[in-house]
Design a protein around this nucleic acid. Structure first.
Lengths: 191, 191
DNA sequence: TCGTTTACAATACGTTCGTATTGTAAACAT
DNA sequence: ATGTTTACAATACGAACGTATTGTAAACGA
């Protein structure tokens, strides 16, 4: 009934409904109609805010990345020493919900067919590696190969998150494995 | 026109066509009709070999896992010492083609919606971890936490494969990073 | 030899997809 | 006051989906 609506916020709501659907029933079941139902709006309104389905998926993927970034940002308390911040960042990744992990895999798999998604994920991955590499340098000095160590740590965190999602390992087991690797890089990796 | 046909082989061909499509254009574009066209057969023949689309995807996922297993098996020469075999296994994973990696992510993302796929991937992941853990024990003795180290190594290998697929790092950079981690576990990790 | 089975194609069917079009009522600009 | 936007719903539409049904010709068992 009213008029002016926050356009970006509405788009965000719709994209978030798409993400929920993707996680719950797979990317293949994300259709305009299902998204509209999930968001409790009409099919026509989805079209009003997104010219095409691809644009909707693009925003959903972007928001999924942003969700991860803000989960990481929320986990690191700024006044901690670098070694603690590094651990907190990796722990945040391990603790990601099933939602973020599943959606991430789904979009990553679409990378081959969608150059825009490819760029999004490539840049996101590079940025994450660079950020972790900086923390590694701060925590360990410049004697270590920071980028290589960052890739190792991010790989371990990702694999632990996957294993946790699949129900293979418990949260505490994941933390132990992460700390095992961290203890190789820096002494005193206690929380 | 003739009669007796190797049923399993035919099913394999069709599933492989589905995999190619999945890699090239994403899981969402894997439809009965497209698979039939990719395999150069009629839509009806796909139905003749698979009662349902889900059965087709199930076999495709199973074959994708088998492909990875045989790539790994082909990479390890049996008479090598364990430390060399371990490195060869991980290198084989890093060197996986874009196809296997992308399809793996796509199926893993369908895990939430498909309990059968969930079991397939959970069991596959556990088996891989156990196999690598055994190699770790053989190579380093029982003083190390073999399963934890196996998860770390598999995580690193997977992340390197992903980074290579996205075009972030070169093959040689990936090998260097893998060897960096391996050198922590065992002395003399040279090829 | 003849009926059954099998490999495969063709097509029909109801559903659902993405998109286009149209309608309506509320807010704004003038 | 009025005409243009804007938020939203409804529906129409052709294409493509998964599946069911039917047809045909070749190989087999009897």
């Amino acid at each position: 009934m009213p008029k002016r609506v926050d356009h970006d916020a509405r788009r965000g709501e719709i994209a978030r409904a798409a993400l929920r659907l993707c996680v719950r029933e797979g990317l293949a079941s994300v259709t305009i109609g299902r998204v509209a139902a999930e968001a409790s709006i009409s099919k026509g309104l989805v079209q009003h805010y997104f010219p095409t389905k691809e644009a909707l998926l693009q925003l959903a993927a972007t928001m999924q990345r942003r969700d991860i970034e803000s989960a990481v940002a929320a986990a690191v308390h700024l006044d901690e020493p670098p070694r603690t911040a590094l651990r907190q960042v990796l722990l945040a990744l391990v603790n990601l919900g099933t939602e973020q992990i599943l959606a991430g895999h789904a979009f990553l798999a679409s990378t081959a067919a969608n150059p825009q998604l490819h760029r999004l994920y490539r840049e996101g991955s590079s940025a994450a590696t660079a950020a972790v590499a900086r923390l590694v340098t701060e925590a360990c000095g410049s004697a270590v190969a920071a980028e290589a160590e960052a890739r190792i740590l991010l790989g371990v965190a990702g694999a632990l998150a996957d294993a946790r999602m699949l129900g293979e390992i418990s949260h505490s087991a994941a933390v132990e494995i992460l700390d095992l690797q961290l203890s190789r890089l820096i002494a005193d990796s206690a929380s």
